[in-house]
Amino acid sequence: MTEVRPIISCRNLSKIYRMGDQEVRALDGVDLDIHAGEFVAIMGPSGSGKSSLMNLIGALDRPTSGEMWINGRALSEMSRDELADLRNETLGFVFQQFNLLARQDAFQNVRLPLRYARKDVGDIDARAKECLELVGLGTRMDHRPMQLSGGQQQRVAIARALSNRPSILLADEPTGALDTRTTDEIMHLMQDLNRQGITVVVITHENEVAGYASRQIHFRDGRIESDSAQPDLKRAAEPGQAAGGRT
């Protein structure tokens, strides 16, 4: 493989939360490159810093120190508005709790990123419809979140994340609130999207979910403990363990 510029790149990334005189090192010097087209699963025990990393990659939060680049652009050099545009155009975010607007129906929820778009996005209604059809909800467009099952709500959220054709899809425990069968549906959908060229980063606790990914990264105490793309790193960290699953 020739050396190409990673689509997501982190160097010595740290996030420290200060609560009174207590310091929590949620991220502690993380170096990470993710290339276009990868399907990455991020795993690790609770509190290991997975969400903290995801929020930084999603341009929702700023690191305490270190630098990160998306598409080669350093986020530290971008203004609030530029970050908003990056979230709108390049990133699609899927949350564990779906985060749909309760008063708006599926169609309106999916349209929202397109309506905030500053560049020309073409026919907004047609695109929103297309995305809902892609996630298999073409017939539920006028349903409000309350009138949809959890899996359906998460699919609306995915359609919303997709609507503005992002190159990166970020999902923080997207199946955390769903049962096994729905989880499989959602992960299949993500896999399809990945095959279509979208870079996918998923946080999960479940090995089955991680199994859909082409690369698994394990976190512990704010550091990368193992990375299936860099087996050396893993061996260096924990020589005795077999590759693959952690429990």
Binding site: R87, N88, N99, Y116
Partner: peptide, 16 residues
């Protein structure tokens, strides 16, 4: 506040 955060997460600028 959560709704505002969500709108920002999907690309609303402060001005919006």
């Amino acid at each position: 506040t959560r709704e505002i955060g969500l709108r920002m997460a999907i690309g609303a600028r402060g001005g919006d």
